[in-house]
Structures are given as structure tokens and as C-alpha cells.
């Protein structure tokens, strides 16, 4: 991709704006369905950033998995749990909000100064032409063990999700067992009052 530098900067700015506004919307919007759709927008924006970083394969994978699977899954969950629930207001919620906001801003400031002050060892070499082939070669050579482990993990997650989410259609209410008993007044034992 040989876009001119100006075009790159402008597209970075636009995508960054989309991502940040979308992310703020995800966190702050009261309507959770809007939040979920904005999350999809954030994912698309991230795919755009990956394209700017010369990674077409990962960008497509991002769209396929995040937008196509994760976001759809989240939307499904929202629409299955479609109870309009008014959360009871917490007594001192603003303290927590304020403290979290402070911590987050502090964290951002810390990371920002670190990023700005670190001398990055930039590598001026050109990027590989075919990222797919390089990623594939990594998967089957030096990253073989993690690759296989991830496949096992996916299988475990698949089975786990099915087990957790499946509804048991077995009748949960057992039939009342009729207990037969004699209409008899309980009598005290003789031994108890012998003393």
C-alpha cells in the first residue's frame, strides 16, 4: 500500500476519531443496544488501522472474528436478555466514578509520557510483501506449540460455552411423592419420662 503520507495521516485521524468516539459511546451510552452497535464500529475502525499498518490479513481476520462473530454474539446476548432493567442507583456512585476517572486519566498520562519519552528502536526495513505467508510460516515453525494449544483452548471454550448455555429440557419440577402416614398422634417415648 503506497498511499501518500498526507492521506495516511488524514485516514489515521479519521479512524482514531471513530474509534475514540465509538469507545466512549460503548462505555457511556445508556442504551446498551446502541453501545453494542458502536462496538462494531470500533472494531471496523480498528481493522482500518491495521490496514494502515500494512496488515491486510489481520485486518480481514479482525472484521471476520470481531465484527462477524463477537459482536453478533454480544447482540444475541443483549436480545436474549432483553429485560428493560432499571438499575437501582447506588448511594455513592459518583465517588467510584470520580476515582476511576482519575485513575484512568493518571494511567493515560503515565503511558503517554512513557510513550513520548522512550527512544524507540525503529527498524527502517521495508515490510514483508506477503504477510499471510509470513504469519503461516511462524505458525508452523517457532509458534507451533502456542498454535496447537490455542486449538485445544478453542475446543474447550466451545464445549464449555455449550454446557453453560444449554437449557435443560428435563422436567425440573418433580412429581410430589405422596407419603403415606397414619393419622396418629405422636407419642412420647417411655424412656424419656422414666427418669
Amino acid at each position: 500500500m503506497n498511499l501518500a503520507a498526507g492521506v495516511q495521516i488524514v485516514s489515521f485521524g479519521l479512524l482514531a476519531a471513530i474509534i475514540l468516539v465509538g469507545a466512549l459511546g460503548v462505555v457511556l451510552l445508556p442504551n446498551i443496544v446502541f453501545a453494542a452497535f458502536l462496538l462494531g464500529l470500533v472494531f471496523i475502525g480498528m481493522a482500518g488501522q491495521y490496514l494502515l499498518l500494512n496488515a491486510d490479513f489481520v485486518a480481514a481476520a479482525q472484521v471476520l472474528i470481531y465484527v462477524g462473530a463477537v459482536n453478533v454474539l454480544i447482540l444475541f446476548a443483549i436480545m436474549l436478555v432483553n429485560k428493560k432493567e432499571d438499575f437501582t442507583p447506588l448511594p455513592r456512585a459518583w465517588v467510584r466514578r470520580g476515582a476511576t476517572a482519575l485513575v484512568c486519566l493518571g494511567l493515560f498520562a503515565l503511558m503517554g509520557t512513557t510513550i513520548a519519552s522512550t527512544p524507540w528502536a525503529l527498524d527502517p526495513a521495508p515490510t514483508v510483501s506477503s504477510s499471510v505467508a509470513t504469519i503461516g510460516a511462524h505458525f508452523f515453525s517457532d509458534f507451533l506449540l502456542p498454535f496447537e494449544l490455542v486449538s485445544v483452548l478453542l475446543l474447550a471454550a466451545l464445549i464449555g460455552a455449550v454446557v453453560l448455555a444449554r437449557r435443560d429440557y428435563l422436567p425440573t419440577v418433580k412429581e410430589q411423592e405422596t407419603v403415606f402416614s397414619l393419622p396418629e398422634r405422636p407419642r412420647e417415648l417411655i424412656t424419656s419420662d422414666s427418669k
Binding site: 489481520v58 472474528i65 490455542v150 453453560l164 448455555a165
Partner: peptide, 21 residues
């Protein structure tokens, strides 16, 4: 990029299990 692919995979698994929970 290889790590990102791993993270994406784990994120998908995490989303599935998390939403099931």
C-alpha cells in the same frame, strides 16, 4: 501480527464463554 492473531482467537473464546456465563 502473529500475537494479534492469537489474541483475536482467545478473545473469541472469551466472548463465547463469558456470554454463556
Amino acid at each position: 501480527q502473529v500475537f494479534t492473531v492469537f489474541v483475536i482467537t482467545i478473545a473469541a473464546a472469551e466472548a463465547a464463554v463469558g456470554l454463556a456465563i
